[in-house]
């Protein structure tokens, strides 16, 4: 582990970071065909403050543990919200945890988006697929303090119209908080009236003042690489461009090395890092 010029804010785990705290699923919502959102409350009643962009290690007892970004509102630490895509044995157990189920939670871990450093300027969120979930807390933070920011854009790419997450949120952010929400999909059926194409094409056309913009990007690494290139081409400074690197987090405290990206342990140095740190690493196949 090394000191790193990444993005900043973070909250620390309460107690021993290796011991999961029991949380109870209170609400369980299917968002898309493969993605669910769980709303949990701590069984011990103690809140879990977190910074937007942080993640926890979620444990389905008997199945295993997986790193999942927090998708809830940082202003409401009394509940913990996670949006989970069913991609394997552990996440399958997690998404099928109905109300009343007890799950183990370690964390919160990692660096946050520190979106408040964008006050006074424009903010551009670029999300791809399930990458909208880790950005949601930062978007909620901006919406709660909307007057402090200039133009706010959410550029969101999904696989198909059926895979679009948080449809109600997207409408509310646009209608109530003057967020310029632009959605595009990779594949659309005939009935789809919206955009079809790459999310990076939205960056090319986005109406924002690049010199005075904070850009937060989350999605598959290939998508983030091209989005970052498009944002750089528009003139966004590398230090004002932050990406969330989702790797195979395991211990959460920078010991095991599962999430290592060259000298960085992404569970503590990341997941949110600035592009000046990441640019030389993202195109290296060996990493």
């Amino acid at each position: 582990m090394t000191a790193v010029a990444g993005a900043g804010s973070r909250a620390a785990p309460r107690g021993d970071p290796f011991v999961p705290r029991p949380f109870v699923v209170r609400r369980h919502r299917q968002d898309t065909r493969d993605t669910w959102t769980l709303v949990l409350e701590p069984a011990d009643g103690a809140t879990m403050p977190f910074a937007a962009g942080q993640f926890t290690m979620m444990q389905a007892f008997g199945a295993g543990e997986a790193p999942i970004s927090i998708s809830g509102d940082p202003a409401r630490p009394e509940v913990l919200e996670h949006t989970i895509r069913n991609v394997g044995a552990v996440t399958r157990a997690l998404v099928h945890a109905g109300p009343g189920t007890e799950l183990g939670i370690r964390g919160p871990f990692g660096t946050g988006w520190e979106v408040s450093s964008g006050r006074g300027g424009d903010v551009v969120f670029v999300a791809g697929g399930i990458g909208l979930a880790p950005l949601r807390p930062a978007i909620l933070e901006v919406c709660a303090d909307r007057a402090s920011y200039g133009r706010v854009l959410l550029l969101y790419g999904a696989r198909t119209p059926e895979d679009i997450l948080f449809g109600d949120d997207l409408r509310r952010w646009a209608a109530d908080h003057a967020v310029d929400v632009q959605v595009t999909v990779d594949n659309g059926q005939h009935a789809w009236q919206g955009r079809v194409g790459l999310v990076t094409q939205l960056v090319d056309r986005g109406g924002f003042d690049a010199v005075n913009t904070l850009a937060l990007v989350c999605g598959p690494e290939v998508m983030m690489r091209y989005a970052a290139m498009a944002l750089r081409a528009r003139g966004v400074a590398p230090a004002r461009l932050r990406l969330s690197m989702e790797r195979n987090m395991k211990c959460g405290v920078g010991l095991c090395g599962h999430c290592q990206l060259r000298e960085y342990f992404l569970c503590v140095d990341g997941p949110v890092l600035t592009y000046d740190v990441l640019e030389p690493l993202m195109s290296r196949a060996e990493l």
Partner: peptide, 19 residues
């Protein structure tokens, strides 16, 4: 070129794999 690049990247189906 722009359209070709868009089509090539979408061929990767990046949202189909875990983030």
């Amino acid at each position: 070129s722009t359209r070709l690049q868009s089509a090539r990247i979408r061929l990767l189906d990046v949202y189909g794999a875990p983030v």
